[in-house]
Design a protein around this nucleic acid. Structure first.
Length: 334
DNA sequence: TAGTAGGATAATA
DNA sequence: TATTATCCTACTA
């Protein structure tokens, strides 16, 4: 099946790139209008990225906001787990770290100390929030087999991302309005451009794209700096088969969904993780996700389940001893 | 009606 | 060539 919109068109897109979060993109053969990026950057930074992300929470986590509990329960020791841009007036060329400041050593008053404490707490939350956002984007990249940086998306990548975002956040379909646009075209579009193409959800899609762009920017900065990322986990891992260009297998895809219960727990979940027994709660949803991942719009549970059954002979998946509908078991549990 | 099982064949990487 | 997609029939809950 051919992907929609293979021919490139920049119709309706702005000639400049208005909303690159920070910094330039040397080496990509692209012209970045830094003057144009500045207002957007300042807006982002003056609000603080946390404010930016928090304002998108209702869109981001409509599936399940359970992970937010983790933020409130987070250990203070997780503070500054990843580089995070703090509010400032001028962009810095250096990758930022989150320094641990000894207020007593600085001779601060108790009031100043309290403010410092509050700021540290805020930074802890920021780190957790950003870490979770990055992880969600990483998962989407794996599942869709697209790069995290929207600027690199082809037309079909853009359509995948649109389908995915519409599906995940229950937005009205807007794919046709963005046909024949590459990621670069998309990134060059203003919020108003988005709204013109899709009055119903253009602003939402633009906000999501902004998050992806910010995440790509942060990823780049992380890779420029050291490899320390949140909580010791390696984001953007290259070890994953789907990120290394290898075609993903259905069993791998199912396992990835199972390993992201806060995103996909409503459509697939472990019944007994130790034994590898899982249940597909929403067969149509899982099939749609698989179809999105493999660019097979006609995928349905009938076909998906046939593929699962092919694993019986191979000893990868089987039906549990007590067979139940929509319940399968990994022969070799994780 | 939806899910299960498996044969056959085509498409794809 | 291996894997998955697709289509099919038969059967079950």
């Amino acid at each position: 099946m051919s992907s929609p919109g293979e021919s490139l068109s920049s119709e309706g897109s702005s000639p400049v790139f208005p909303s690159r979060p920070l910094g330039d993109r040397a080496g990509a053969g692209e012209t970045w209008e830094m003057e144009e990026t500045k207002p957007r950057m300042e807006s982002l930074e003056s609000r603080g990225l946390t404010g930016f992300y928090l304002s998108c929470f209702d869109m981001l986590f409509t599936e399940d906001s359970g992970w937010l509990v983790k933020v409130s329960e987070a250990s203070p020791g997780l503070a500054c787990a990843m580089p995070f841009p703090t509010p400032r007036t001028e962009p810095s060329e250096e990758p930022e770290q989150c320094p641990v400041i000894d207020s007593q050593a600085l001779g601060l008053s108790p009031e100043q100390d309290g403010v410092q404490e509050e700021e540290r707490s805020l930074e802890q939350v920021q780190s957790m929030v950003v870490g979770e956002v990055l992880k969600d984007i990483e998962t989407a990249c794996k599942l869709l087999n697209i790069t995290p940086d929207p600027i690199e998306w082809s037309c079909s990548n853009v359509q995948k991302w649109l389908l995915w975002t519409e599906h995940l956040y229950r937005l009205p379909q807007a794919g046709k309005a963005f046909q024949e646009l590459t990621g670069k075209d998309l990134c060059a579009m203003s919020e108003e451009d988005f709204r013109q193409r899709s009055p119903q959800c253009g602003d939402t899609l633009h906000a999501h794209l902004d998050i992806w762009k910010s995440a790509a920017w942060m990823k780049e900065r992380c890779s420029v700096g050291d490899s320390k990322i949140t909580g010791g986990e390696e984001l953007w891992s290259e070890a994953d088969s789907s990120c290394s260009g290898q075609p993903i297998h259905l069993w791998q895809f199912l396992r990835e969904l199972l390993l992201k219960p806060h995103n996909y727990g409503r459509c697939i979940r472990w019944l007994n993780k130790e034994k590898g027994i899982f249940k597909i709660e929403d067969s149509a949803h899982v099939a749609r996700l698989w179809g999105l991942r493999k660019n097979r719009p006609a995928m349905n549970y009938d076909k998906l389940s046939r593929s699962i059954r092919q694993y019986y002979k191979k000893g990868i998946i089987r039906k549990p001893d007590v067979s139940q509908r929509l319940v399968y078991q990994f022969v070799h549990p994780v």
